[in-house]
Every structure is written in C-alpha cells, then in structure tokens.
Design a protein around this nucleic acid. Structure first.
Lengths: 178, 178
DNA sequence: CGAGTGACGTTACCAAGTCACATCACCTCG
DNA sequence: CGAGGTGATGTGACTTGGTAACGTCACTCG
C-alpha cells in the first residue's frame, strides 16, 4: 500500500502499472492480486475493518439508546482508531481519488457498504425501516464530512470531536428542509 | 444497449465479451468503446440525461419553493419521463447489477452524481449547506426506493406517485431518528 | 522425520481498453 | 458538378489489468 501511494503521487495513478507497484514492494504482480482484488483496492483495503468495527459498536451500544445515539457511539469507536499518520495518508489519498473516476466509484461503493453495515446492525436492534438506514446514512455522511475537515492542517480538533459536531449540525439542518 | 442486456441475461455479465456485444449490434469492439466509456457504462448510459433533467427542473421551480418542494418538483419532472418499457428494462437490469460488484460501483457513483447535480442546482437557488445536499440525497433516495417498488409487477401505481409517497414517508421518518 | 500448509514466483493466457491509420458516406461550397 | 471537409465506422497492433495452473520454499506439527 505504501509503495502504491508513493508511485501514484510520484507519477500519477494510471501511468503506474501494477507491475511497478509490486516491484517496488519487492513482490510480483501475481502476489499483488492475491492481496488486493484489483488495482484500485490497494487504496481502500483498510475500510473492511471499519465496517466490522461500526457494526460491532452499534450492537454493543446500551440497550435504550435511540438510533442516532447508537450511531454516534459507533462513530466514536471508529474515529478513536484514527491516529495522526492515518490523517496524512488521507491527505495524500484525496487528490489521487479526486482525479480518477474509477477511484471515486470504489469510494462511493465503500461508503455505501459502510452505511449498509450500520443499517443491518440497527435492524438487529429492532430499528425499523426507513429509520435505520436514514440514521446510518446520516452517520456516514457526518464521518466523511468530518474527515474532510480533519484533513485541513489548520484544524486542530480531534476527528471524534469533529464527527460529533458535524452529526449535530446535520441533525439540526434536517428541520430546515421544508 | 439492447444487445448487451440480452447477452448479459442470456449468459451472464462476465462471460460475455465486449466483442460479442458489438457483434450482436452489428458493430466493432472499437466502435463500442467510442460510444461507451467501458463495458459497465452500457448499462448506465441513460443516467446522464437524468442529471441534466433534475438540475434544470430544480432551476425552473417556482421562486418561493422550499428546498424539498423544489426537489419534489424535479422528481416529478424526472419520473414523468419513465414509460412502461423503461420499467421492464429496470426489472431485467436489477439482477445483473446485483450480482456484480463492479456494476454496483458504477450504480453507486451514478447515484452520487445525481445527488450532486441536485445539490449544485439548489446552491444556485441560494440554499445553503448542508441543507441543499441533505434535500438532494433524500430526494435521490426516494426516487431509488420508489423505482424498486415500481419494479414489482403487483404494483400498479405510477412511478411519480410512488416517488412522492416515498419522499413523504422519508421526511416523516426523520423525526424518529432521535 | 515426513506430511501438510501457506505464501510466493513463473509462465501463459484472456479480455478490457487505447491508438494510429484507413475507409466511406455525406455535406457544403465554389 | 467536383473538391475538400467532417463524422462515423472498421482494421490491426498494442498495453495492461486480471486469472489460472503449476512449481518452490519455508515453516509447523505430530
């Protein structure tokens, strides 16, 4: 993953071949594909852990918690795992993704899967539709928005703080819809 | 597009080559790629029209309309263009997409672009963030949910009716979040 | 010590996607 | 009417993502 990110920022995403990535990592093209489903996935591999983490945290939320409170607890658990080096990775990742549609696709799917995992976990808490998925989507949105703010070096808040704050703002904005 | 959908349902998505699709359409592989960015796109090509339609309709909504009212008007304009043969296409499309991650990716991106187009159009009406994007995402969600219901042959309502009703239900469910 | 297991390399292959160049129909304008 | 321009298509060669079959090597465990 490090080799890939380096090469992508050095010479661009589509001009670096998988062969080059594997070479720099001291491996073979075949081995690369044993670890990553495809070339894009090398930039998103971590996300599968996140879905599990979110789902578990929602399941472990206190019994009487409302949907949004459970989501908030899950986001707390997730954001707590984000150390500062992850922030730098995110910062370097963003322009690469922004410049390539195929990467935005993968990002969009991962985001949808994140929301899906939270939705399922909420269903297991007997939260009905469409409440469950709305809460999940709002939570995911808060997380991504907060991550964007976190990437700004002028921002010295915790990702957890930013996420909570953003979730509150989104919830408050719902009443202004109509 | 017809040739592709036929072949995909006959023999599966990943076992049909672009060469076969082009052959059945009486064309060449090269010409195929001149019309569609890649193999997936042949199933989603129509959607670019939809984004334009939605954006225009939001721009044309009556001046004092609230964000959600503008979104509702746009969805009315969009759903009005869906004739019954489009419903059949959708029905045949769904299982193909459901079975292949790469197609779900493309679908997720198109959906995000749809919401993005509506968000931009709302910004031009001086709707601030995050109200604009929340309204847009809610509208897109209503449309997709309604389309799913529309695909059920036991359902004899109009897509427009279904979409309006779904949007109302989603809006009502927002209060139960917390 | 011998069999199993897992991670990796080698090679060959297929199909997606690109590119340069040729062809052909059609349109326009002198 | 004829010459040149334009746009859509075909042809063939090429790169690269991605897969599959097979072999090797280290390590582990009974």
């Amino acid at each position: 993953m490090r080799a890939a990110l380096e090469l992508f920022t050095e010479q661009g995403y589509d001009t670096t071949t998988v062969h080059e990535i594997a070479d720099r990592a001291g491996l073979t093209k075949t081995t690369f594909f044993r670890h990553f489903r495809d070339k894009r996935e090398v930039l998103f591999a971590g996300q599968n852990t996140h879905t599990r983490l979110l789902a578990d945290a929602i399941g472990a939320a206190p019994g009487p918690a409302t949907p949004l409170k459970a989501v908030r607890a899950a986001l707390d658990a997730l954001t707590a795992t984000f150390t500062d080096d992850r922030r730098e990775i995110g910062v370097r990742l963003r322009p690469v993704i922004a410049g390539h549609t195929e990467l935005q696709e993968r990002a969009a799917l991962k985001r949808a899967r994140l929301a899906g995992a939270m939705t399922d976990a909420l269903h297991k808490r007997d939260v009905p539709e469409p409440t469950a998925s709305l809460a999940a989507e709002l939570g995911v949105r808060a997380f991504y928005d907060a991550f964007d703010q976190w990437a700004d070096p002028a921002n010295d808040r915790t990702l957890t703080e930013l996420t909570r704050r953003t979730l509150d703002e989104l919830r408050a904005a719902l009443v202004a819809l109509d």
